[in-house]
Amino acid sequence: MALALFHLLIFPGFLFLFVFALAMEFVDRKLYARLQNRVGPPWFQPFADFIKLSAKEDIVPEKADAIMFRLMPVFALAAVVTAFFYIPMWGPQALFSFSGDLIVVIYLLTIPTLTFFLAGWHSTSLFSMIGATRTLTQLFAYEVPLFMAILAPALLANTWSLSAMTVFYDQHPAYAGLNVIGFIVALIALQGKLERVPFDIPEAETEIVGGTFTEYSGRLLALFRLAIDIEAVVGASLIAAVFLPFGFGLGAAGGFVIYVVKVLIIIALLALLRTVLARLRIEQMVIFCWKVVAPAALLQLLINLILSGVLRS
């Protein structure tokens, strides 16, 4: 019981995730700044932002649904933290696992997006409602490619459990190299999920102010931002576990270092992506996702389908 609580709240649970996610936000922001030839924030900036926001007043719009408005950030945070426990990090075995946890993780990662939509919708402000509809439109564009990209390696490994998948690729590292298309698709979809340039359409500040989060302030906004930071780390961990299943044989400490390096690489790639591209329009984003990303994911699925047939025969 005490150990389970320790796992949940301290390591690798909430406290670790909190520190790790904010540290990764710092890495992202610093890298973004350095790529733009700027200095960037000091290391404690994300923490300072969080503390400052937490100390600010929470304002709930008069016409908003107060309960939904207050609940949504907590939901988002809870979902992403829960998803983390099922992802293998420094060993091939996740903290918890069962057959089918891959599907659960993908669904848990969808929940934050849905909470963004509900939060925006229940704010009843024009800008947040437009942001909310954009969030949902965008969800349909990137979610399917993401599913297909992550299910393809699972097909090859012939399991629906993330931990079992990692064990499979740990034994057959050569197969991981076949999932390159899926890796790229997943990166693009994760960028969309995190609503960052070029897919920051739902919160494009020059168009619709703060988008979904226009009406949010204080602690609730801090929770939302924390949820997005954790979502970035969890998403990166998921991609690392599925597409970069290397270096598990080094024990706990070595495995941890390798894990952090993997997450760093993915965060860096995402930061580079948002540095070199301009924001797309919503319909351009949907067209791009269905015409380019989805067929690429389908191709990956097809390759793995044929391969698994060949392997099993």
Partner: peptide, 8 residues
């Protein structure tokens, strides 16, 4: 730019 001094 990563390997240059920031312009700031």
């Amino acid at each position: 730019s990563l390997f240059r001094k920031p312009a700031t």
